[in-house]
Design a protein around this nucleic acid. Structure first.
Lengths: 108, 108
DNA sequence: TATATACGTAACAACATTGTTACGCAAATC
DNA sequence: GATTTGCGTAACAATGTTGTTACGTATATA
């Protein structure tokens, strides 16, 4: 049991994915982001904090404004993880296939 | 605030990723999986339940044994999600680039 | 200088997650 | 039939997460 703040954890939350969605293509400041959601600004603030902690969002301070800029970079970790096991999983899929075939036969 | 049991949530936990790692390439029954971890069998049981709920693991009952088979299929959702925003994120990267350039200039 | 704006953050409540032990039940084995 | 094995699950404690309101602080503006 420990606090986990990596990319996998960051993108696990639908609100955070929605925030990333909004930031994709245009930088926005926090209040503009918060206006699009029904939840409070502090809640959004902490979601964005989680995103910055794993590098998915970078904050650009400009006077009293803080622009949020999406950074897909850390997603490569997720991509790598998926790629790494795809070859192994192919074997699993064989086993799964075999299993499903047997099931189909049983149902006949 | 709601219970979320999708692929994103499933792979967010390192223990579950480790379980998927173990299952990649060979089906195993629950006790065999649990033996590899320091945490209790019921805990593993529930992790696997989360994985089955999102389709990442499929259970093949054989007598009193229940083989766990990894299924990478649902990961396509993650892949699709990443691909969808890559084009948009390119723009974000431009903004990020610009920001970093300005920072570099400032530091001179 | 007074005020509005754009945040961060502390303090709290509600709920989710993750672990534990204890128990139950069905399949295999004796 | 009694025991062992493989597993699910209930009940509980500890901790994490996510939301809220209330407040503080720095920057822009009147």
């Amino acid at each position: 049991m420990e606090t986990r703040r990596d990319v996998f954890h960051a993108i696990a939350d639908p609100t955070r994915r929605a925030i990333l969605h909004m930031l994709a293509g245009k930088k926005m400041n926090l209040n503009t982001v918060a206006d699009q959601f029904d939840i409070s600004r502090p809640a959004i603030s902490r979601h964005i904090k989680v995103l910055t902690e794993c590098g998915m969002v970078i904050i650009k301070q400009e006077g009293r404004e803080r622009y949020c800029i999406a950074n897909p970079g850390p997603l490569s970790e997720v991509e790598t993880w998926m790629k790494t096991y795809k070859a192994f999983w192919a074997d699993s899929l064989d086993a799964l296939d075999e299993f499903l075939k047997k099931q189909r036969i049983r149902k006949k």
